[in-house]
């Protein structure tokens, strides 16, 4: 397997969230075309309900994946960890939800940017099956 661009050990230095709210393990790759991350759903994940990860954890995963990728791509936030907030969620579609021990593979693309405002499109997959897709607006502060 290819070495991640940012590994689980370092991911916390890129985003303001602390455990147990970190919803990204590794930044697999980041290019101007797409940002890829993975995340293993552990039994102790606080967003599990009856062994299933809730949808807002997937949205958070997309937001955190975006933040790490945008920093690596030097789009913003050269002072780490980056500070910001989610300004909106749109075009949300939920197809399925991951379960304990599933690894979520996430692809995020930058739709547009104006200053420190970013519109990101994200998709979560487990074993090739799409779980959720949405657009999130991220605002860096």
């Amino acid at each position: 397997m290819k070495k991640p661009k940012v590994s689980k050990a370092d991911i916390a230095s890129f985003i303001p969230q602390k455990a147990p709210f970190i919803m990204v393990d590794n930044l697999i790759n980041a290019t101007p075309e797409k940002i890829e991350t993975d995340f293993l759903v552990l039994e102790e994940n606080i967003f599990l309900e009856n062994g299933t990860l809730r949808e807002f954890a997937l949205i958070e995963n997309i937001a955190q994946s975006s933040a790490v990728g945008l920093v690596v791509l030097e789009k913003f936030g050269q002072d780490r960890p980056v500070e910001g907030f989610m300004g909106g969620i749109s075009k949300l579609k939920v197809f399925d939800l991951p379960r304990v021990n599933d690894t979520i593979y996430t692809i995020v693309t930058l739709v547009t940017q104006m200053g420190n405002m970013f519109l990101m499109k994200g998709e979560n997959y487990v074993n090739g099956k799409k779980m959720l897709e949405c657009e999130v607006k991220l605002i860096g502060v």
Binding site: G87, G88, T112, M114, N116, M117, F118, L119, K137, I139
Partner: peptide, 23 residues
């Protein structure tokens, strides 16, 4: 609100090929 500006930027890019990156 100011965050809605992102959708307007998308319209300008998607339909008219006009990019606005500077706030």
């Amino acid at each position: 609100d100011s965050i809605d500006a992102l959708e307007l930027v998308v319209i300008m890019e998607k339909y008219y090929g006009v990019a606005i990156t500077d706030e």
